[in-house]
């Protein structure tokens, strides 16, 4: 019943696991675990990139995989871990707003994105038939995670996971962005990360907490 070649099955499995990770992130309460999940997400991305590279034989995808490995599996999580250590938010938990409800909304988001991707994948190559829907879902789910989080740290993690989703989508739909764009994005993310790190320290100095709830006091009118 499955006419798909093994590499595609593997790609599909990667995609499904990415989706599973997104849900895990949505329901995770501990910041440290969130960062670890992000690292796992990054390594899945590496595997997926390698599969596509091997399938299509495009050498620049290998480079891209290497870049992802360096940046998303090692550099960013390490940076985040250091931040956590320095800010001492190791065991920081946060009240997730009714995880079951959030996951239910997440489920609807998944249905929406699968439906959205269906007409596109109908006209596309088999390789991306299904992964595009998942990529959209991962992006939207990360967005959802950003909305439901209050701690700055978790928001940044969700933001990075959104970027991962975007990358996955680009990779599966068009076999990766041009190298220049990819390098640019990678640098952007790195820089954004560094800026956010500085930002964290500033917020904490100002409010003694990383709770973004405090930012509400910055508004002009009551």
């Amino acid at each position: 019943m499955h006419p798909l070649p093994f590499s595609l099955q593997l790609l599909n499995a990667c995609a499904a696991l990415l989706l599973l990770l997104s849900f895990a992130m949505l329901s995770q309460r501990r910041t440290v675990n969130l960062v670890n999940l992000l690292a796992v997400q990054g390594s899945l991305l590496v595997i997926a990139t390698l599969i596509v590279a091997w399938r299509t034989g495009q050498p620049h995808l290998y480079v891209s995989a290497l870049l992802t490995l360096a940046l998303k599996v090692f550099a960013l999580p390490m940076l985040l871990h250091r931040l956590i250590r320095r800010l001492n938010v190791w065991w920081d938990t946060e009240p997730v707003i009714n995880p079951s409800g959030t996951m239910l909304i997440g489920l609807l988001v998944v249905v929406f994105s699968f439906g959205l991707a269906q007409p596109i994948s109908a006209v596309a190559d088999t390789a991306i038939r299904s992964t595009l829907g998942i990529a959209i879902a991962v992006i939207l789910l990360s967005f959802l995670a950003m909305i439901t989080r209050r701690k700055a740290m978790s928001q940044v993690v969700a933001f990075l996971s959104m970027e991962n989703g975007l990358f996955f989508g680009a990779m599966s739909a068009t076999y990766g962005m041009p190298m220049v764009v990819e390098l640019g994005v990678a640098l952007d993310v790195l820089v954004a990360m560094l800026v956010l790190g500085v930002f964290f320290f500033q917020i904490r100095e100002q409010f003694d907490s990383l709770d973004l709830y405090h930012l509400e006091s910055l508004k002009e009118r009551d």
């Binding site: 079951s100 996951m103 997440g106 489920l107 998944v110 699968f114 299904s130 829907g133 998942i134």
Partner: peptide, 23 residues
């Protein structure tokens, strides 16, 4: 406990959706 089980329920439904999309 309900949260734990709701997660199980939603994962199963998600599995259904993934099946419909991928398989």
């Amino acid at each position: 406990a309900p949260e734990f089980l709701a997660t199980a329920f939603l994962l199963a439904v998600l599995g259904l959706l993934v099946h419909l999309l991928l398989e």
